[in-house]
Design a protein around this nucleic acid. Structure first.
Lengths: 213, 213
DNA sequence: TAGATTGTTAATCGATTAACAATC
DNA sequence: TAGATTGTTAATCGATTAACAATC
């Protein structure tokens, strides 16, 4: 029943992974699991799992372990998966289209409501059942249907001004694939910078370093 | 001149971000920068920047700061950007195509040499100047031209067996977009798991938590 | 020289791991 | 009851920040 008032980012970033592993266990008909067995499957320590879960409450049973299905639901609830945030996608180039088509938004708390782009070749196209609209219509569209989240798949140069416009229409969260770092602290605005290029570069670094040993 | 024998992952993950900021400064004609000014632009402490850089060597000059262009080159060298790793892409669906078209591989130490897919509709298509080949040709293709890195944009179910086949042909690094967690420690094999879904879920969590305050 | 800013050591803070009493 | 495993506190480890002497 211990509930920390502030949960560290390290813990939060592990939650979706627990959620995935528990889903698989559930699918495979596993009813109960101990922190020790889960830790072995996930490559963590049992201690860390118990510590993490106890940030939110005592979901286990001493001497027995955790009910897979119940724990799965609890984590889903903690992550807010039982509620959808209306979301607009900015930029329908390669990356924007891939994200729109590839992501399972609804099971991750996101409802995609509109897609915007600048380029005449793309405007009017259908992506995942949505018609791509010109960015000039952003404000009117968002007045009808105010989004909580914006996904940015736009060029770096375009990002600062688009971010301003999105903040003006009340967007509270950004999932940012652009090469522009959103950092200024508009209080209460959440930013998740993805930076795939950075991820690839750390792989290159590790590869290079590995080879020397 | 201090050189740590082992660099922590926290430091490594910050390097590409330094690299990007330094590139921009260089582009804007900034010649010299102090750790203090850079820290303000990046939203870090000056102490952390000096600490990070000194893992690799003393690149600054006391009383003066750092030469932007020189520091940029040094970090590029540390990250191994002056050498390309031959790389194959597995899976040319939405995500695979987007990654292939969108990423600036060469400036991140990667040379894309082959693209493989299973689906007859996709095989034979041209993506970024490469013809998509059937996965059955993986072994023969890799014998001619052994890749160091594999990018996985394939379904979860397909991942385990493909990973085995790639390890067998000598792949040393995986950039993994599949929902399958590669964790087993084949010694010397580097894995960079991306998990975009996890990133989106942490955004949902933070949004939900934010709202309560 | 005086002023500025690094490189580096020391202090603090936070996250992970270990240990164990509580309890199913 | 005895055995197992949690919840939770304490110990350890690592990362960040602060401080300052070295030096350009």
């Amino acid at each position: 029943m211990a509930k920390a008032d502030h949960i560290s980012m390290s813990v939060i970033r592990r939650l979706p992974r627990y959620y995935r592993f528990l889903y698989d266990l559930k699918e495979n008909g596993v009813v109960r699991i101990s922190s020790r067995e889960l830790s072995q499957r996930m490559g963590l320590t049992a201690s860390q799992i118990r510590q993490d879960l106890n940030c939110f409450g005592g979901f286990g049973q001493q001497g027995y372990g955790y009910m897979v299905s119940q724990l799965y639901d609890e984590i889903g609830h903690i992550l807010g998966m039982d509620r959808l945030s209306d979301t607009v996608l900015l930029g329908a180039g390669n990356m924007g289209r891939a994200i729109a088509n590839h992501m399972d938004f609804e099971s991750r708390g996101i409802r995609l409501t509109d897609i915007f782009d600048d380029s005449p070749q793309v405007i009017g196209q259908q992506i995942r059942g949505l018609t791509v609209r010109p960015i000039s219509e952003l404000e009117t569209a968002c007045q009808e249907h105010p989004p909580q989240v914006a996904i940015l798949c736009i060029p770096k140069e375009a990002a600062p001004s688009i971010v301003e416009r999105l903040l003006a229409v009340g967007v509270q969260g950004f999932w940012n694939f652009s090469h522009y770092d959103i950092l200024y602290e508009h209080p209460g605005v959440i930013v998740e910078n993805v930076h795939l290029g950075d991820s690839l570069m750390t792989l290159s670094y590790q590869l290079k370093t590995q080879r020397k040993m």
